[in-house]
Structures are given as C-alpha cells and as structure tokens.
Amino acid sequence: MTSHSKKDRLIMAGLFIAIIATLLISLNMGTMRVTPAEVFQTLIGNGSEQNQLILFDFRLPRMIIALLIGAGMGISGAILQSVTHNELADPGILGINSGAGFAVVLFIYLTHNNPVSTVFVLPLTALVGAVLAAVLIYSISWKNGVTPIRLILVGIGINAAFSALIIVFQLRMDPDNFTQATIWLSGNISGTDWSYTLALLPWILILLPFTIYKASTLDALNLGDETAQGLGAAVEKERMLLLLAAVALAGASVSVGGAIAFLGLVTPHLARKLVGVRHRHSLITTALLGALLLLAADTIGRNILSPSEIPVGLVVSLLGGGYFVYLLMKS
C-alpha cells in the first residue's frame, strides 16, 4: 500500500469517525435535551418511553435520512462534474432539482394540499419530475451524440425554464399551499420518519456501489471523449448510464429532502482537495463528506433558533454559497 493510499484511507476513516461523533452530538441536542447517559440507556433498550419516542421516532430517522441524502447528492454532483467536464455542475445547476421542484409545486397546486395524498405521492412526484428534466436535457442536447458543453448549457436553460414555471404556479396558490411549497423547495427533512428512510435506502444502497464500480470509467471520461474512446470506453453508453445514476440519486434524495442546493457542487470539490482526482477514493470521500455536511447542517438548523427550526436547505445554502463565491474568486 502506497503512502498516498494510506493517507486517503486515514482521511476516509477520519470522516467516518466525524460522522459518528456528529450523530452522538445530534442525538443529545434538540428542544428536548437528552443527556449522553440517557442516549446510551435508550439505545440499549433501558430508556424511558419519552426518550425512546424522541430518539427512535423523531431524531434517528431524520439523521439517517440526512446521511443518505448527503451521500446521494454528493455522488450525483461528482458524476455530473465528471461527465460534463465542468467543476461547477451539480443537480441544481443542471435543472434536475428544479424539475423535481416543478413537479411538486404542480402537484400541490392541482391537489389543493390533500394531506393523505401528499404524504404518499409527493416523493414519487418529485422523482418523476427529476427524470422528466433529465430526459429533456439529454434529448435536446443530442446531436450526433452528446457533448459535455452542450449538455451543461441545455441544463442551465432547462433549469431557468422550470424555475420560472415554479414561480408562476406559486403565485397562483393560496397562502397555505404557498407556504408548504416554499418550505419544500428550500430543503426540509423535518417530519420524516422510518417510511421515508426505507423508501430512500434502496436507491442509495444500489446506486452508490454501482457508481464506485464505474470509478475507472469516470476517470477515463474525465480525460475527454477521444481519450476515453482510445482507452476502450463506450463513451455515449457509459455517459448515459452514469447520467441515469446521477439523476436517480438526485431525484430520490430531492423527493425526500426537497431541493437542497450546493451540496452536489461543494462536496466533490472538497473530496478532490483531500484525496485527489482518482474516482475510486474521491467518490467514497464525497459520500462521507456529503453525509457529514448535511447531518451537521441539520443539527445546526434544529438547534440554533430552538424551539424554531431553520430548514436544512437554507443552512446548506449559506455554507455552500460562501464556498461557491470562494471558488469563483479562485478560478
């Protein structure tokens, strides 16, 4: 094992330990404080009914969802940055998030906030919107193949179009529906439970290993289409498969957590700074960073103005927006 590989593994181990530490801190914090001793007693089955309710029904599912969404959005951004050869690409900029957001806003507008249908259908609606946006982007970009620059330019245009449609339908909503749509669009994982976790988990468990398996293909695509073809990669086929994986990861994540911006942009950059550009290690690091950042952002959002909450998407936007400005100034 080379010293570089040892360093990468130490970084990944450090991120994993940081996630565990943040989980333990987050379990203690909230409107109802639970001491570390009470957390331990509850986790081994000896806690009070109140603490069991707080930890197992409210905090743990929300934290696991934050970890899954963070990893999914981070990996989605890493894929998009590689296949488009653009370090500023992410699901939000390319229109995938806005496609999901438009589908949700349209659904809320048409159903007039029917609580029963919203709980069960909203995640599927967001996923359909994300897939629709991706199909539009890919089909409009196609001209004897798809070039990275055309893909990202069309994605920016689709993003602008869906964002405009979202505003049009929001302006036609009644105040209650407008508030619901605004909270969802800002990125929010409050009110989630184990059913949301189980709905999101299969997507992450299947697509994250698939993406890591395709790490060498992403390395080849990162070198440019001609070089990738010279190395034996079926460029168009691989690009389409990887784009589908990115869309599915982003769509599934957005369907549960709303349109959380900047996460898919920031985490691949940070991962490359920590472990370099080779995807086998950078993808794992990106997933760990995304999980850690979203969990930390949710912990901050839950506690900084307690008992009120700040939607996690706003906290991520504050952190990611600052880093985005830093990137623009450096590049």
Rank of each mutant, 00 (worst) to 15 (best):
S163C: 10
H85N: 15
G224P: 13
T147I: 05
G77M: 10
G47M: 07
A250H: 03
W203I: 01
L127D: 02
L198S: 11
D8T: 13
T2E: 06
S255W: 01
V146Q: 04
V146N: 03
L270P: 01
V266L: 08
I152A: 09
L205P: 04
I140A: 10
L136G: 01
E226P: 02
I284V: 15
V83W: 06
I20M: 15
L151S: 02
W203K: 04
N51A: 10
L305K: 14
N113R: 05
V116Q: 10
L80P: 02
I140E: 07
L270K: 05
G276K: 03
I183N: 06
A133E: 10
L305R: 15
K273Q: 15
T211C: 05
P209K: 08
I204K: 00
V256G: 05
T125R: 08
M173W: 09
W203Q: 02
G257H: 08
L132Q: 12
P123Q: 09
I156R: 00
P307S: 12
E238G: 00
F210L: 11
S216P: 00
I69W: 01
H85C: 05
L242E: 01
S282W: 03
A246P: 03
G258K: 02
R278V: 04
K330F: 09
Q229Y: 08
A296I: 07
T197G: 13
V116K: 10
G74K: 04
L153N: 07
G187W: 03
L242P: 01
L294A: 09
G232D: 13
